[in-house]
């Protein structure tokens, strides 16, 4: 069953067109990886879906309803949470306050609460009274994920959560993914690291220059095909 989909989505930054008719679907309970080089439009796609930038044309459907015209807070309240690129913790808030603010727009019962987030990332419990920005990069990423989980979203959008982190730390963070899926949350991960994406995803979409160039399950995609979709066909 399709939970979230876009149809012919386009987006602009001023005069610059960043998305050219993107069709994307996400099934309930599915984990979808979006890969693509820097500047391919992955973040723009996520930002359009969560309402931060208005879609110029096309449609975004969530759970059967057209949500394309809604604002970011409204979309968040429907159950789409985002882990933004670069983590973006609030510097004036402590770790715990950063987590608590995740429930501001949506007060729900569900798997995720302060204590279950701390169980997921135990190191955060020890540091809960520190300012969010005093943590290491990996720990900050955990806060950002925990913050998004606090609203018990039905869809979790993760934008480059491995960016700038050491491989061991990336492994720790991705180890949380199965637990997140267990709670029934569908996940979109945006990654530049193809190996990581193929390992965790049920399905992979590759973007280039604002368009989707390839789609398939990890098992059916060969390195060579992905390479073409990623960098453009070899001459």
């Amino acid at each position: 069953m399709t939970l979230l989909s876009t149809h012919g989505l386009t987006a602009f930054y001023g005069d610059f067109q960043a998305l050219f008719g993107v069709d994307l679907t996400l099934g309930a309970g599915e984990t979808l990886a979006i890969i693509g080089a820097n500047g391919a439009g992955k973040s723009t796609l996520l930002r359009s879906v969560c309402g931060l930038i208005p879609a110029a044309s096309g449609m975004i459907r969530f759970d059967g309803a057209d949500v394309g015209a809604l604002s970011a807070p409204e979309i968040m309240a429907l159950g789409i949470a985002m882990v933004p690129e670069g983590r973006r913790l609030f510097p004036s808030l402590s770790v715990e306050e950063n987590l608590l603010i995740g429930t501001y727009g949506r007060k729900t019962q569900g798997t995720w609460s302060l204590s279950t987030v701390y169980d997921l990332f135990p190191v955060l419990r020890e540091r809960r009274h520190n300012p969010g920005t005093a943590l290491s990069g990996g720990q900050q990423q955990m806060v950002a994920i925990g913050r998004a989980l606090m609203s018990n979203p039905r869809v979790l959008l993760c934008d480059e959560i491995s960016l700038g982190l050491a491989p061991v730390v990336i492994k720790d963070i991705y180890a949380a993914l199965p637990r997140i899926k267990e709670g029934g949350t569908s996940v979109i991960v945006v990654e530049q690291d193809i190996g990581q994406a193929l390992r965790v995803a049920d399905r992979v979409v590759c973007m280039m220059e604002g368009r989707i160039t390839l789609e398939g399950t990890p098992a059916r995609l060969t390195r060579a095909v992905i390479h073409d979709a990623y960098f453009g066909a070899r001459v």
């Binding site: 931060l52 970011a72 968040m76 609030f90 004036s92 808030l93 608590l100 501001y104 727009g105 609203s151």
Partner: peptide
């Protein structure tokens, strides 16, 4: 308070605050 957290969050970063459901 939760309103106070929202004050500080919006003051820090209004864009990300919107992702938290804050207007």
């Amino acid at each position: 308070t939760s309103l106070g957290r929202a004050f500080r969050a919006v003051s820090d970063d209004p864009t990300t605050a919107q992702l938290m459901g804050i207007r």
